[in-house]
Nucleic acid binder design. Structure first.
Lengths: 120, 120
DNA sequence: ACGCAGGGTTTACATTTGTAGACCTATCTG
DNA sequence: CAGATAGGTCTACAAATGTAAACCCTGCGT
């Protein structure tokens, strides 16, 4: 039930994509992608560690941070909470709303069709 | 681009469902559904009015509040921002993830199939 | 005249989120 | 040695969010 804010999600993605990362590398990435000061990055790392969404192992004197929840888990949780907030938990309603709103491209539709048909 | 918090969404739903509502009725509903004190309800009404998500018309000396953005609009916005945050904006990816995670019931799948086929 | 309900405003306060400066130690390197 | 870099901690601060008490006026019923 860990709630991730948009910003936290970005950090999670870094860690999901680029595995366990030493502090400095994370700081560099976050400076590049978010324009963050070192201390801002450290603050987030600290807070997220307390909340349990990430963790680290010690590598000598310094740390290697890694995601402490799987992407699948997190995605599912976000998806569930989104669907329940907006569409009463009903995916079908979401698709149907998007169709009505013309929020789906022909490609989206074909893709969904294919995925459903192939069960993949 | 109005961002609605989970709590604000509940108020929007009240207004979408039960049309323009006089202040006292809203306060009663919110006390029932959220356990709110009158002042809490008033605070939210005030803030949401400033932000433009709701509005009111004067009915004599008192107000009738109504949703100032359509449900369709709001749903679409939330859906877009959710999809872009979690699935890089790709609905197909969402469906496919949910399938893999077995987060879709047989009924969900059949419903999606039907919706897509009927374009409805 | 008095108190209660309707309808509001103003103020307050804790928590979370986003952001960062100041400062400390250990180490490496010219 | 002196200064840069790595790796951290601690403190601070504004804005947003969730929550509510206090207080005000106006009618209405008794």
């Amino acid at each position: 039930m860990i709630k991730l804010t948009d910003t936290e999600w970005k950090i999670m993605e870094l860690l999901w994509d680029k595995g366990p990362m030493p502090t400095m590398e994370l700081i560099r990435e976050l400076k590049d992608s978010m324009g963050w000061a070192k201390s801002t990055a450290m603050t987030f790392l600290g807070r997220m560690t307390s909340k349990g969404s990430i963790a680290y192992s010690l590598d000598g004197k310094s740390r290697k941070y890694f995601a402490n929840i799987s992407r699948d888990e997190a995605e599912l949780e976000e998806t569930r909470s989104f669907l329940s907030k907006i569409y009463g938990g009903n995916v079908g309603l979401m698709i149907s709303s998007m169709l009505k709103q013309e929020a789906l491209t022909k490609e989206d539709i074909e893709e969904i069709e294919r995925i459903i048909k192939d069960g993949e």
